[in-house]
Amino acid sequence: MNEIAVVTEQDIPDILRMIHEIYSELPNKEWFSLDSDEEVTSYMMTGGFGLKAMCDGRLAGVFIARAKNLGDENLGYDLKFDEEQRKQSAHMEIAMVRKEYRGQGLQRKMMEESEQILKEQGYHYLLGTAHPDNVASVNTFLKLQYEQVMTKEKYGGMKRSIFCKAI
Rank of each mutant, 00 (worst) to 15 (best):
F32D: 00
D14Q: 15
Q148L: 14
L70W: 04
I4N: 05
T140Q: 07
H124C: 06
G128H: 04
R17K: 15
A60V: 08
T151D: 09
S114I: 03
T151L: 03
G61K: 04
L51V: 12
Q85C: 07
M111D: 05
L118S: 01
G157C: 03
E153F: 10
I167F: 14
V138N: 04
Q116F: 03
R17D: 15
L51Q: 03
G103V: 07
K80D: 09
R108M: 15
E112A: 05
D82A: 07
K52H: 08
I64S: 01
E9G: 07
G156A: 01
Q88F: 10
V40F: 02
V97I: 14
D133A: 10
P27Q: 13
M44W: 02
Q145F: 04
K29L: 06
A90G: 13
Q148S: 14
E39A: 14
M45S: 15
E9P: 01
E25I: 11
E147P: 00
E112S: 11
A65Q: 04
L51P: 00
K52W: 06
L79C: 01
M45I: 12
Q148N: 15
I162K: 05
D11F: 13
D78R: 14
G103M: 05
K119T: 10
A130G: 10
I22N: 02
A136P: 06
A95T: 13
I4P: 02
D37H: 04
M158P: 00
E25R: 15
G103T: 07
Q116S: 12
L34G: 03
M110E: 05
I94N: 03
E120T: 13
R98Q: 11
V138C: 08
L59D: 02
S161L: 08
D78F: 10
Y77P: 00
L51M: 12
R98E: 11
G57V: 11
A53L: 13
V6G: 08
K80F: 13
E30W: 01
D72S: 08
G61Q: 03
S36G: 11
V7A: 14
T46A: 07
R160A: 02
K87F: 06
L16E: 02
V138A: 03
M54D: 11
T151I: 14
I15E: 00
M1Y: 06
K152A: 09
N2G: 04
W31L: 05
T140E: 05
E21H: 13
E113V: 11
L51F: 08
E39Q: 15
L126Q: 01
A90D: 10
A166N: 15
H20V: 07
T129M: 05
D82K: 08
G57Y: 12
E84K: 11
I117P: 02
V6H: 12
I22E: 06
I12W: 09
Q107G: 06
K29D: 02
Y155D: 03
N134S: 11
W31C: 01
L79A: 01
G156P: 05
G103W: 09
G105Q: 09
A5V: 15
Y43I: 05
E30H: 09
L34H: 05
I19D: 08
E73L: 09
L118Q: 01
L79W: 03
D14W: 10
L126S: 01
V40T: 09
L79G: 00
Y155R: 06
I12M: 14
E21N: 14
S89C: 12
M110F: 11
Q145M: 08
I162R: 08
L118E: 00
T140S: 12
K154A: 03
G50K: 04
A65H: 02
G157I: 00
R66G: 00
